[in-house]
Each structure stands twice: as structure tokens, then as C-alpha cells.
């Protein structure tokens, strides 16, 4: 674990304002940002732990507890609301159960073909109850 973070930090040596790129990579690699990695990054960038913690806690993408569940990002912003996403939420939660995490996001930029969702980098549009269930089940 330590060496993985070392490698990530080393990747951005000499770059200005490298905290977000580093945290993005840590989050992507580990699935969360641990207290241990916050300490390491703070030391490497000559920041206080409070400063790094402040950044980690500010952004929605950074998780401070590990969660092994696959994530389905479901857009629930206005355009998807207008196309009926709210009617799909309850059933999707049932399908997800304890195995899948359904995360609300505000806008995937697929606003003319919503409701839309994203799993990893895979995007899905024109979701109805059946299609969203299939996406959740396959996540």
C-alpha cells in the first residue's frame, strides 16, 4: 500500500497544485483515501494533515471509508427528473440491496436521453425500470 502511494506521489513530482491529481489516483486505485495515505501525502507535499483532510472532505468523489460495493451513479438532476428518474429510484434500491451502492450524481451530460446512469466509465441512457434493474444487477 505504502509503495503504491509513493508511486502515485512520485508521478506528480514538480507539478504545481498536484494534490487533486494525487488524490484522484489514490481514490481510483484504492477505492478510498485512508488516514494513512493522508499522512503520507501531507508529508510528501509539505502540507499539514489538516490541509489534506480539508481537501479530501470537500470533494464528493473522495471516500474516507472503504466500500467494496460496485457503484451505480444515477443522475437525479432536473433533466432526468423531467424524464421520470424519481419513479425508478425505489425499485433500483431494492434490486441493489446490500450488494450494490447507488450513488446520486447531478448530471452526466446525457440530458436529452435520460434517465441516465454510469458504472465505472460505462454510460447508460433511456433507462426505464427494467433497464435500470439490469444495469444494477450487472454492476
Amino acid at each position: 500500500m505504502e509503495s503504491a502511494i509513493e508511486n502515485i506521489v512520485a508521478r506528480y513530482t514538480g507539478q504545481q497544485g498536484s494534490l487533486l491529481p494525487i488524490l484522484n489516483d489514490v481514490q481510483a486505485a484504492a477505492g478510498w483515501v485512508s488516514e494513512e495515505s493522508i499522512r503520507f501525502i501531507a508529508k510528501a507535499l509539505n502540507l499539514t494533515r489538516a490541509e489534506v483532510h480539508g481537501v479530501v472532505s470537500f470533494y464528493h468523489d473522495y471516500k474516507t471509508v472503504p466500500d467494496p460495493r460496485p457503484v451505480v451513479k444515477l443522475c437525479r438532476a432536473e433533466a432526468c427528473q423531467a424524464r421520470g428518474v424519481e419513479k425508478l429510484v425505489e425499485q433500483a434500491a431494492v434490486t441493489a440491496g446490500a450488494r450494490v451502492k447507488i450513488e446520486t450524481v447531478y448530471c452526466l451530460g446525457l440530458c436529452s436521453v435520460g434517465p441516465a446512469a454510469m458504472v465505472g466509465d460505462r454510460v447508460y441512457a433511456r433507462l426505464d425500470a427494467a433497464k435500470l434493474n439490469a444495469v444494477v444487477a450487472a454492476a
Binding site: E78, C107, G109, S112
Partner: peptide, 11 residues
């Protein structure tokens, strides 16, 4: 950072 719902021109 095109975050507005209903916009996708930047994308």
C-alpha cells in the same frame, strides 16, 4: 466543469 443539468455542449 460543465455541471449544469440540461447542458452538454462542452462535453
Amino acid at each position: 466543469d460543465e455541471g449544469d443539468s440540461g447542458t452538454f455542449a462542452d462535453r
